[in-house]
Structures are given as C-alpha cells and as structure tokens.
Design a binder for these strands. Structure first.
Lengths: 210, 210
DNA sequence: TAGATTGTTAATCGATTAACAATC
DNA sequence: TAGATTGTTAATCGATTAACAATC
C-alpha cells in the first residue's frame, strides 16, 4: 500500500501539534470539536486544519465536527505511534547521553537498542541498561540487530562517515544533530535538529530588533 | 535604526547555513565564490542565494562574485555573532544540564549566567562554574543581572509560568524546549525546539514510506 | 573591451485562506 | 426540517526560480 499523495512537509510538521492537542482534549474529556474551535485554540485557520486532515482521510462529520478520541487515535496512527521503532544513538557526549536518558523517548515507542562512541573512557558504561559500545563494533551489531532509526550526535567531522555506515546497514531514517547536511540516498529519511542554528536564528532576530 | 524589511523566517533560517559554509570556505583559503558555485555546493539555486543576501545589502560584485572572507564577516554580523548575549537556563534535568555543558555555546557568544531548577537535590550543584539556583530566586536574580535570552527545559506544565517570569523581567528572547506553544507578547522572540515533534515527524515519514 | 556575474524585476510554483455546495 | 460544519474547489498570498539589464 502506497499512501503517497506526496504530502508536504509543512503539513507533516503540524501533525504532532494536532495530535498533542487532541491528546490534551481527550484527557480533559472533551468529546467533539469543530475545525473552527480547534483553529481558534491552536492558532491555525479552520480551513488549514480541514485541508491538513483531509490529506489522510475523511475524519469529520458535517454538522458535528470531529470526534476527539477518534481523531486522536487516527493522528497517533498516522504518526506511526502504534508501531515500534528500534533506535541506536551514535555519539554519547553530553547531549547524546542526555537523550539516551530521555524517558519521553520510550513513550513514543522508540526503543533504544544501542549506543556507540569512540571515547574509550565511556565505552562500557551503561545508560538505562544499554551499554555504550565502541563505534567499530557497529557493523557487527547491525548484523544481529536490524535497526530503524539512527540518531547522530557525533562531531561534524564524523557524522557523514557514521551516516554512511547506517545507510549501508539498512537503517531507514536518521535524526541528525551534527551541524552538517548529510549526503544520503533519496529513499533515506533525514531530519535535522541543528541546535546552533536555532541559537543563531534567535540571535539574528534579537539583532534585527534593535 | 530599524532594518525592518520584514525579512521572512524562511530566509533567516538559511543564514546560519550560509555562514557556516562560508566559514568552511574561509578556512580552506577560498577567496571568492559566485552564487552559482555556492548554490551547487550547498544545494540551493543561485537565484535564491542572491535574493536572500540582497535582503541585507549588496555584498557581491558583478563579474566577480562574492569575497568569501567579507561575506563571512557580514553574515556573522547579521547573525549577531559580534555581540554578546547573556543567557539563563531554566530546568536542569538531563537535557538542560547537557546544554549547560555545551561548549559550542560560548563560541557563539552566548554567555551562561544562571541555571535554575525546582529540584532540591541538584540546587547548589555547579555546572561550568555556574551554580544551579532555586527557581524562586529567579526574580531577585534578574534585578541585578539583566538577561537577554532564557532557555526553557522545564516540563510543559511549568513552561508558561517560567515564560511569564522571563517576559516580566526584560528577557527579550526565549528558546523553548518544552513541547508547548508559549503565549508571549508580540515583541518577544520565541524559537521552539520540539524534540518529540522531530521524532514524530521522522516516525510519520517512516510510516508513510511503507 | 568582452566575459562574468551581480542585483532586481517578472514568472512560476506551492501553500494558505476563503467560499460554498454537500450532507449530517 | 433547519442549523452546523464538513470536504473540496477556487482565490489569494508568499516564496522560489527564471530572466535580464546593469556593471565590474
């Protein structure tokens, strides 16, 4: 099955926000909501919400709106939250270790299966029952442990090399925290989180404002 | 001076990437580069690069292109990198502490002046010479220490409250890692880094692909 | 001067918003 | 049935790309 309507990234990026808010409404016990009300609460137009959702199906009902619990479930499913993903982290410095410890992680069905680093001082340490292994053991590890997602916290210098190893070992998606643009085949999914870019954007806006 | 051409976020988000690449070229000793070449190397169109840069000035020269070192300096200045920013971190959990330790931080002229948390177990600890203080001391602290940027790593539940305190104490910009949308006056700059949204986007794309 | 490449205007493309017939 | 609100088509807005005169 190929649900390829070629949905734009702009739409996909809004889905987690919808899902989160619908989750909040579910907890509050709200039963139904219209696109108008949802839009007002979330700061979107009703039109945009209807357009966005209709990329994935007809979840609403004329004259009624959307059933909160159902829509929440649908969104969770679209976001792949009823699946389970196997994850490795490469680079266990400050931020790598912090994210390895991130408990919200497991709640989103991301199962941490391996941590790799080059630093002999930390190899062997355990984070949440997962041992930090030497990066040289990575290829061997992948033989026995098929992995869905690799999260890169290495230096920029190593990131491309690590990315190549991931790609060559059937990893399908990469979350990249190293401040470079990775070169990967077209069928590999990459999301970048460039912290220093966010800081610089902020500093740029501050600078503009004065 | 009001350099308000109302430059779009799409443009501003590309500036750190330009600056980073120009820095790399400077190090490599490259002296000049055309928008065409730059575009090919970075995966943008030459047209877009010229449009983007011309929002800020005429940095190029017909028939020659751009002087790498000069453009690098200009971009650094536009990004506010020749200024110094005073920063506080609120929420010193895993990720908050990791970022407090982040050395790249200082390189970008972000000077960490304070860390605050509610957890009595970690209050008093020092991270890079900065003591973690009780969040209740925050208002008093701001009296003597004017701060430019607040970075929020608290839970979603506390984030809005913290944001309000920042805003009421002349903090001008907020980097928000809590997965909620903050409510702030129009003149306050907010950048969101929603890690779980990035993870969900990735998982959504993986899900779409199969 | 001739060639190269800019800055900028015009054309295109895509995303958002508005409008409205369909229908619960 | 009448009112509400959807799904969807059409209009608008903004961002990207193409084109080209200006000029180094």
């Amino acid at each position: 099955m190929d649900n390829k309507k070629n949905i734009s990234m702009a739409v996909i990026r809004r889905l987690p926000k919808y899902q989160r808010y619908l989750g909040y409404l579910t907890e509050k016990g709200v039963e139904r909501i219209s696109s108008k009300e949802l839009g007002e609460n979330m700061g979107f137009t009703a039109s945009q919400i209807r357009q966005d959702l209709n990329n994935f199906g007809d979840f609403g009902q004329q004259g009624y709106g959307y059933n909160v619990k159902d829509l929440y479930r649908e969104l969770s499913s679209i976001l792949g939250m009823d699946r389970n993903y196997k994850v490795v982290i490469i680079g266990a410095g400050n931020i790598g270790q912090a994210l390895a410890n991130y408990t919200r992680f497991e709640k989103l069905n991301f199962h941490l299966c391996g941590i790799f680093d080059v630093n002999p001082k930390i190899i062997g340490l355990k984070i949440r029952d997962v041992e930090i292994k030497d990066i040289d053991e990575m290829v061997g590890f992948f033989k026995d442990n098929p992995i869905d997602i690799g999260i890169i916290f290495t230096t920029s210098a190593s990131a491309q090399k690590v990315s190549d190893i991931l790609v060559n070992n059937q990893v399908k998606a990469i979350l990249n925290f190293a401040p470079i643009d990775l070169n990967v085949p077209a069928d590999i999914i990459v999301q970048n989180v460039h912290l220093s870019d966010s800081l610089l954007t902020l500093s740029c806006l501050l600078n503009q404002n004065s």
